[in-house]
Design a protein around this nucleic acid. Structure first.
Lengths: 210, 210
DNA sequence: ATCATAACTCACTAGTGAGTGAATTTATTT
DNA sequence: AAATAAATTCACTCACTAGTGAGTTATGAT
């Protein structure tokens, strides 16, 4: 039952955010009395956190593992694209293979990261992985200015977050050519797209200097 | 007074979203009785829409104008970077020069685009400009597959939305090296970064083919 | 000064939200 | 079958939200 509650909460929070969902909404969709949620979870915030925590550890561990593996495999010569592939694809694979639940979690996370509190809370979890990524990026771009790498990273997360947030929505613009839950398509493009961006702004800096 | 109400609503909605803000919150911060908001605006949704509408037209007009100007100036040979500069910088300039209000609006828009309803509502306004951009991008990349351009565009908005959404928050990760309201820094990097990405995924497609 | 209108407040209603503690049902053990 | 514990519902409280309509103050024209 607890799992079902988390599943529904995950879905609803991902669509409407923390304040846009009531415990009754969740309970109703689960088909259970709303006070049962207070039985399993102290309060609304606890439920929200539980939704996050349930899967956060998994993503983080996998990503960290993937980055470690990549760096080892690269044997001292990592590339931006390689690092980004490790960072992004590992996550995207989860959403591709993990079924409905993981897709909702992706959207949930993206939504949560939008509020100041949510972002701060999540950063606590994710910062180590991000720093690990940035560490590898620095090795791949030894001449790069630190700001450039950080800005590049911001662009990457932005793109990823938007993709995750829009899961399941139709892209009217492209007349359905791009489905926002077509993570295969994203996986196929994103790392390479972003790697080129990183290279470019480092190049730009050299030009600015010289 | 109406302006003050809109200003405060803009700020609060940008932080907490539609459901995270009560009319009392807004009224209190304006220093006015909460029922006054019902005097100026039919209901909460009307207020929200008014916040959006107040500035939306300005951005859209300016962007559309900038794209038109660019295409004319490019005289049949537009570049991806040029188009993106027109599209992005025009907006960023507004946030740079427009003062606090415009910065809040940026965050407000990014926040609003996160909910399904909000996104759909906004898309109605923004679709024409976006299609105009994509039109130019297609001319700049005549060999590109349509999906690639749409995906690239998604990455661009994602990065932009994240930047706008995080306005005013400190980036702990970079120890303050990147300030998310340092739009000058974004302006300096984003168009070029993204243009390189576009080029790359078109290149990739050629490789995939041949 | 007077009247009219705009700007704003007050007192209130109806409804909803989260949360509590007692009561009941369901499952588990003995 | 009885006893016990877990799972679930019920009846309720308290705080708060959006919104309404009547009332009040300020503003401005005549």
């Amino acid at each position: 039952m607890m799992e079902q509650i988390l599943d529904v909460a995950e879905l609803l929070f991902s669509k409407h955010g923390f304040h846009g969902v009531t415990l009754k909404d969740v309970a109703k969709q689960v088909g259970v009395h709303h006070t049962l949620l207070n039985y399993y979870f102290d309060d609304k915030q606890t439920l929200f956190d539980a939704v996050f925590a349930r899967r956060a550890v998994v993503t983080i561990d996998r990503r960290m593992q993937a980055l470690d593996d990549y760096e080892r495999a690269a044997a001292g010569k990592p590339t931006v694209e390689g690092a980004l592939h490790a960072f992004l694809d590992t996550d995207l694979d989860l959403y591709i293979q993990g079924g409905e639940g993981w897709k909702n979690y992706g959207a949930f996370g993206a939504q949560a990261s939008n509020s100041p509190e949510g972002a701060e809370f999540m950063d606590k979890y994710f910062d180590p992985v991000v720093l690990r990524l940035i560490d590898i990026l620095k090795k791949a771009l030894p001449d790069a200015a630190e700001e450039d790498i950080f800005w590049g990273y911001h662009f990457v997360t932005g793109a990823l977050m938007l993709t995750l947030a829009r899961t399941g929505r139709i892209d009217k613009l492209s007349h359905g050519l791009c489905l926002s839950d077509d993570y295969e398509a994203v996986k196929h493009r994103m790392a390479r797209f972003m790697a080129a961006g990183f290279r470019e702004i480092c190049e730009q800096r050299k030009q600015d200097r010289g």
